[in-house]
Structure formats: structure tokens, C-alpha cells
């Protein structure tokens, strides 16, 4: 009897699990420490940042905000390493954290090879050629470049047939 009595309410219980459990899985309250005061937390952050800035500035004798040394008599000598940018780069709005860790291709300073040996050779060779021969004039120095008048009509036909080869802008404008 007792078992049957025990079994029955369990079966009854299990059959109704779906709708009965729903109110019990309500969301946990996220506000553990009461309502947030945005103004005060912002103020706290700014104060904290200011504190870090001033202490670090005193430590390194450097104004990190303006990127200049605080005074000339400090224990450190500061020198600018990167080339001074005239135009600051406009960053995309969805700036992700840690982007500064990655090099932007333009910022990478690559060593430029100086080919002073080749330049020397070129100079000597050009001097040689100048000594041996006179400079050659071009035929276009003597004759004016004209448009192909006779071929104009046939060119137009060609351009109609083959749309990939369009007439030049200079031809269109005149």
C-alpha cells in the first residue's frame, strides 16, 4: 500500500515537471551590490587613472599624455624613436583591444639598401657613352603626331563589334 502510495505521487510529479519547474528557474539577480552609480564610478576611474599617471610621470620624469619630458634635470634622457606623424591615422570605430600590439604595415621602418657601388658604375658608363657618340634625336622631334584620319571609320566599327575595346577618351572628347 505504502509503496503504491509513494509511487503514485512520484509519477504524478514527474508527469508535471515541465510546467511546474518553470517559475523556479527564474533569472538570478545580477545586481549583487545594489544599484550602480555611474557618475561616481566614472569619477573613481578618472581619479585612479590620474593617480597612476602622476605617479608614473614622477617616476619616469615624462608627461605621457603630451609625450614630452617633464623637466630637463630628470634622471632620464628622452629621445623620440618613431618618425613624427603629421596626420594622425584615423582608426576604424570598431577598434578592438590590443590593436596597438600589431604592427600597421606603414609603421614598420625597413632598412633601405644604398647601392652606392652601382651608382658609381652607372656614372662611369654614361660618361663613356657620351664621350663616344652623339645623342640620338627622335623622329617625333621632327614630325608632328597626328591622328589616323583614314582609319577612324574602321576603328569605330571595331569598337561597336568588340565592346571590350572602347574608344579612347581623347577620341571621344574631340
Amino acid at each position: 500500500m505504502s509503496t503504491s502510495l509513494y509511487c503514485n505521487p512520484l509519477g504524478h510529479f514527474l508527469s508535471k515537471t515541465g510546467p511546474q519547474f518553470k517559475p523556479e528557474t527564474r533569472k538570478v539577480k545580477r545586481s549583487l551590490f545594489g544599484p550602480i552609480d555611474h557618475v561616481s564610478s566614472q569619477k573613481f576611474l578618472e581619479e585612479e587613472l590620474e593617480r597612476i599617471r602622476t605617479t608614473q610621470s614622477e617616476k619616469w620624469n615624462f608627461d605621457f599624455q603630451h609625450e614630452v619630458p617633464l623637466s630637463q634635470r630628470g634622471g632620464f634622457q628622452w629621445k623620440s624613436v618613431a618618425p613624427i606623424k603629421i596626420k594622425p591615422r584615423k582608426r576604424p570605430i570598431n577598434d578592438f583591444e590590443g590593436q596597438d600590439l600589431y604592427a600597421i604595415p606603414d609603421d614598420v621602418i625597413r632598412p633601405t639598401p644604398i647601392r652606392f657601388m652601382q651608382e658609381k658604375e652607372e656614372v662611369t658608363s654614361s660618361q663613356k657613352s657620351h664621350q663616344n657618340s652623339k645623342p640620338q634625336r627622335l623622329i617625333t622631334d621632327f614630325m608632328p603626331v597626328k591622328k589616323r584620319s583614314s582609319s577612324d571609320c574602321s576603328k569605330k566599327i571595331a569598337s561597336i563589334e568588340r565592346p571590350s575595346k572602347l574608344p579612347r577618351l581623347s577620341e571621344l572628347s574631340s
Binding site: 623622329i139 617625333t140 614630325m143 608632328p144 603626331v145 597626328k146 591622328k147 571595331a158 568588340r162
Partner: peptide, 11 residues
């Protein structure tokens, strides 16, 4: 071929 050659005026 579709050549685009310059034509010179021979004086």
C-alpha cells in the same frame, strides 16, 4: 590586331 599606332605628319 587592333593596333593603336601614332601617325606622324611628314612635312
Amino acid at each position: 590586331m587592333n593596333l593603336d599606332q601614332e601617325h606622324l605628319g611628314i612635312p
